[in-house]
Simulated scan of single mutants.
Amino acid sequence: MTLEILTPDKKVFEGEVTAVTVPGTLGSFQILKDHAPIISTLEDGPVIIKGNSNGEEIFNIKGGVVEVLDNKIIVLAEAVVA
């Protein structure tokens, strides 16, 4: 799967992943290969990325939207905080 995390001013992450956990409005949920198409709003919280070989990366976002379609995940975040 490919993942892009975008903010209004830059692309924060782009790459191949095996799983992504996002902070949905009704609770966090995980996206795996062949996930059904979905668009969901996101709350403030961590986006946890599991890569093919490089372990785990975490980006803390300030709200946004996630779209999943054909094994491509796009996270549009208001901001990413350190």
Rank of each mutant, 00 (worst) to 15 (best):
D70F: 04
D70H: 12
G27D: 05
G27P: 01
N60P: 00
I48G: 07
Q30C: 12
G45S: 10
L3N: 03
L3Q: 02
G15M: 01
E67C: 05
Q30V: 08
L3G: 03
G27S: 07
E78N: 15
L26G: 06
L76W: 07
G24M: 02
E57I: 00
T41S: 15
A36T: 06
G24W: 00
P37D: 10
S28Q: 12
G64N: 06
L32C: 05
E57L: 05
I48L: 10
T7N: 14
D44P: 05
K50W: 01
S53I: 07
G24C: 02
N60S: 03
V12S: 13
F59S: 09
A82T: 05
I39R: 08
V66G: 11
L32Q: 10
M1K: 04
I61W: 13
P23W: 03
V20R: 07
I73R: 09
E56N: 09
M1H: 08
E67K: 15
I48M: 07
K10D: 04
G27I: 01
E57N: 06
A77K: 10
S40A: 15
P37K: 12
I39M: 13
G27Q: 05
E16G: 04
L76D: 09
D34T: 06
V66I: 14
F13L: 03
G51E: 14
K62N: 04
I31R: 08
V65L: 13
A79K: 13
N52K: 11
F29P: 00
G55Y: 08
T2F: 10
I38S: 06
K50M: 04
G24N: 05
N54P: 00
G51M: 13
L26I: 03
M1S: 10
N71S: 11
P23N: 03
N71L: 06
D34R: 09
F29L: 01
L6T: 04
D44R: 15
T41Q: 14
E43A: 06
V65W: 07
P37E: 09
G63M: 06
G24H: 03
I38L: 15
K11G: 00
V20K: 04
T2V: 02
G63D: 10
E14G: 02
L26F: 04
V47C: 10
I58P: 05
G55L: 12
K11I: 00
P37N: 13
N71Y: 05
A77S: 14
N52I: 01
T18D: 14
Q30M: 14
L26K: 08
V65A: 07
